[in-house]
Each structure stands twice: as C-alpha cells, then as structure tokens.
Design a protein around this nucleic acid. Sequence first.
DNA 1: TGCCCGATTAACT
DNA 2: GTTAATCGGGCAA
Length: 193
Amino acid sequence: MTARLHRDFFGRSVHAVAPDLIGATLLFRGVGGIIVEAEAYHHTDPAAHSFGGETKRNAVMFGPPGFAYVYRSYGVHWCLNFVCEAEGSASAVLIRALEPTHGLAAMRRRRGVKDPRLLCSGPGRLCEALGIIGVHNGLALDRPPFRLEAPSDPVEITIGPRIGITRAMELPWRYGLKGSRFFSKPFKGAISE
DNA sequence: TGCCCGATTAACT
DNA sequence: GTTAATCGGGCAA
C-alpha cells in the first residue's frame, strides 16, 4: 500500500496511465484525495492542446513524462494534467475529479463551499481546492509539493466519452472510479472494465 | 494589432 | 435549459 508512483509509471501510453490513475491518491502540499475521474489526450488527438504542435503554453507536454502541465481554461480556471509516454510524444492525462480525503478544511476555505462533493468534482474546482496555479506548470510529480500514491486495492473502472470538448467527442477516453459520487458529471453510456 | 475561441464554472430562467 | 465571466493562444491582416 501507499506505493509511490515513479517516473516509469508515466512513461507508458496515456490509455494505460489514465485508467491506472483511477483510485490513486493525489496530494499537493498534503491536500488532496483519491483520483476518481481522468481523461486521456494524445497529440494525434484533435482535442489535445498539443495537436497543432509545440507552443509556449503546451511546451511541458512535449517534455519528458512525469511532470505537471497546468494551463488556464476559459481565462478563469486552472486545469492539471500529467505528462505521459516519451519525450516529444506530447500526450497527457487531464485530472478531472478527486474524492477529497486530505486537508478538507483548506479545500473548503479555498473553494468557499462546504459540500465535499463540490470541492474537487471538476478540473477547475480541484485546482482551486488544492491551490494549484500557473506557476506550478512543469513541476515534477514524484517530489514535493506533489505526492502520488498507487491505489491500495484493485479498483473497478468506468469508461465513457470525454466531456467539455468540441472535437473528437466520440472517443471513449474518459475513465472513472466505478460508482463514485464525486464525478464532475455522470458517465453516460458507460462501459465497465 | 485585432479578433475569435476554448479540456469551465456558477448563477441564472 | 442558457449565459456571463475573463484571458492567453493562434491566426489573419
């Protein structure tokens, strides 16, 4: 239990890493919870930021695996991704929701809500709850302030179409912890694995 | 430089 | 169900 996730873990296909992240514990400065929802993005995928090639914003995606890619969404929110595969592959997993387990008081203070289901259920919400912002773009995931631990027990995975995107919507690259009450949105037409 | 748009959220009707 | 908030990237001129 509590096996740390090392760089080798991320040096695999996003389609292997994303489901393996479900059930893992993500902490940022000791605050966080269990990853219950994630989506895979690959540079051959029209919905990925890296699809059009390397830019200043997405440069971290083109670097080595095991680092955080943080970007601003809709000019309002921050979103957290984990870079995967090999350097230059430009693929990443978007962390979409956590089940809060550590530092609930800090999360409530930052988010301004009490309901645990509103603290980290969404990519923008979880970054606000954990205090992750643009300056954390490019940080390594295997050392502080990040900490990642593998699931202590095997988990059942739910798979469905990604949400919030306008391109390649049909690709079933959204992964969830089966039965979780902390999704950003329900899984529709979900398949269990 | 100007313009449009987005891997979102919350607050509406 | 709809829409404003808000800003950097990407592209056209």
